[in-house]
C-alpha cells in the first residue's frame, strides 16, 4: 500500500518536473535576444560556430526534438553559460547555493525553536494576557515588511551599538578556503590558527540575517501551533484524560503535543518556498553571497541563461522539499493516509 502511495507521489513529481522544464525551455524563446545565445550563453557567435551550434541544439528540428535535447543537456550537467562570467550556470549556482541553504536552515531552526513553544504557551493560556501579548507580537511580525525590519536592526545593532557587522558571511581578513560551502563547517574543517575567532566572527555575521529571515516563519509557527493545539485540546480524549486525573502537564505532553505538532511538521515544508523568497531579499540587504543575490544580480544584468537556470533550480528545490515533507507527514500521520 505504502509503495503504491509513494509511486503515485513520484509520478506526480515527475509530471511537475516536466512542466517546469517545458517552462524553462520556452524561456529560451520568450526572452529577448537571439535563441542560440539564450540557450548556450555564448555571445558574439561567429557564423561558422552558429552552424555547428544550431545543429548541436537541434534548432532546425521541431520543438519536441529541441526540448528533448534540452532535457538531455540538463541531465548531463551541460547547462548554458552565464553571460557575465562565461561559466556553466549550474557550477556557479552550486557554489552559491550552500550559503543560502545555511542561512535558511538556521532561520528555520530559529523559527521552530521560538515559534513552537510560544504557540503552545499561547494556546494553554488562551485569552489570558500572555496569549494576547504573543498573538499581538506574532501579528506585528507577520505584517512587518522584511526589508524595513532588516534596515531597522542594522541601524540599531550595527550602526548605533556597533555590536554586529552589516554584511557578508565572515570578516574579510579571515582566509577560509571553501570546501563544503557551509561557512561554519568550513571553519571547523580548516587548519588555521584563528579558528576560534573566525567561528565567533561567522556567528556574529549570521545573527542579524538569520533573525530577519526567521521573523516571518516564526510568526507563522506561533499562529499555527496555537490553532492546532487549541483544536487538539478541545478533543474528547483530552477531556477523558483530564477526567482520569492526569495533570495538565502530563496531558499536554503525552496526548496534546504529539497530535498538535503533526500538522506543524507539514507547515515546515510549506514554509520553505516563502523562506527562499524572503532569503533573496535578506541576501541583497546583507550582501550575503547566496543564490538569491546571485539571481537578483542576474536580473539586473539581463543575464538570461542565469535567470533560466536559477528559476529551474530554485523551483525544483522548492517542489522537492514540499513533496518530501508531504510524504513524511503521511508516513507519520495515520489519519492522513488515504491509500
Amino acid at each position: 500500500m505504502i509503495l503504491h502511495y509513494l509511486f503515485r507521489r513520484l509520478f506526480l513529481l515527475a509530471f511537475v518536473f516536466i512542466a517546469l522544464t517545458v517552462f524553462a525551455f520556452s524561456l529560451g524563446y520568450l526572452f529577448p535576444g537571439d535563441v542560440l545565445g539564450n540557450f548556450t550563453g555564448l555571445r558574439n557567435i561567429s557564423p561558422a560556430n552558429e552552424m555547428i551550434l544550431t545543429k548541436q541544439l537541434g534548432l532546425e528540428q521541431d520543438y519536441l526534438q529541441q526540448y528533448l535535447l534540452f532535457l538531455q543537456r540538463l541531465l548531463h550537467g551541460q547547462w548554458a553559460l552565464s553571460f557575465s562570467s562565461q561559466q556553466n550556470v549550474l557550477t556557479e549556482m552550486l557554489l552559491v547555493m550552500p550559503a543560502t541553504l545555511e542561512l535558511a536552515g538556521y532561520a528555520l531552526f530559529l523559527s521552530l525553536l521560538i515559534g513552537i513553544p510560544l504557540g503552545i504557551v499561547a494556546a494553554v493560556r488562551k485569552d489570558k494576557w500572555l496569549d494576547k501579548l504573543i498573538s499581538t507580537l506574532a501579528l506585528v511580525g507577520f505584517s512587518m515588511p522584511i526589508f524595513w525590519w532588516a534596515l531597522l536592526l542594522i541601524m540599531v545593532f550595527s550602526l548605533s551599538l556597533g555590536w554586529l557587522p552589516t554584511s557578508g558571511r565572515l570578516g574579510v581578513l579571515y582566509e577560509i578556503s571553501p570546501n563544503t560551502g557551509f561557512m561554519l563547517l568550513d571553519i571547523l574543517l580548516s587548519d588555521v590558527s584563528y579558528r576560534q575567532q573566525a567561528l565567533f566572527d561567522a556567528i556574529r555575521h549570521m545573527l542579524l540575517p538569520a533573525v530577519v529571515l526567521a521573523t516571518y516563519p516564526t510568526t507563522v509557527m506561533i499562529r499555527f501551533t496555537r490553532d492546532s493545539m487549541l483544536d487538539v485540546l478541545d478533543q474528547n480524549y483530552i477531556k477523558t484524560a483530564r477526567a482520569k486525573g492526569l495533570t495538565r502537564l502530563q496531558v499536554l505532553y503525552t496526548h496534546g503535543l504529539r497530535n498538535a505538532l503533526l500538522p506543524v511538521t507539514r507547515q515546515v515544508g510549506l514554509q520553505f518556498s516563502t523562506l527562499i523568497t524572503l532569503a533573496m531579499i535578506t541576501e541583497v540587504i546583507f550582501s550575503w553571497p547566496g543564490i538569491g543575490r546571485w539571481l537578483i544580480d542576474s536580473i539586473y544584468q539581463r543575464n538570461f541563461p542565469a535567470i533560466q537556470g536559477g528559476v529551474l533550480l530554485v523551483s525544483s528545490l522548492v517542489i522537492l522539499v514540499n513533496m518530501l515533507t508531504e510524504i513524511m507527514h503521511t508516513l507519520f500521520n495515520p489519519l492522513a493516509r488515504k491509500f
Partner: peptide, 26 residues
C-alpha cells in the same frame, strides 16, 4: 548543521554580549 547551529547558539549565548573582539589573530 542543525547540531552545529545549536553549538553556535550556545556559543553566542555565552559570548553574546561581549564587546567587539575585533580581528585578533589576523
Amino acid at each position: 548543521s542543525l547540531c552545529l547551529s545549536l553549538a553556535c547558539l550556545i556559543a553566542v549565548a555565552t559570548n553574546g554580549c561581549q564587546p567587539d573582539s575585533g580581528n585578533i589573530g589576523v
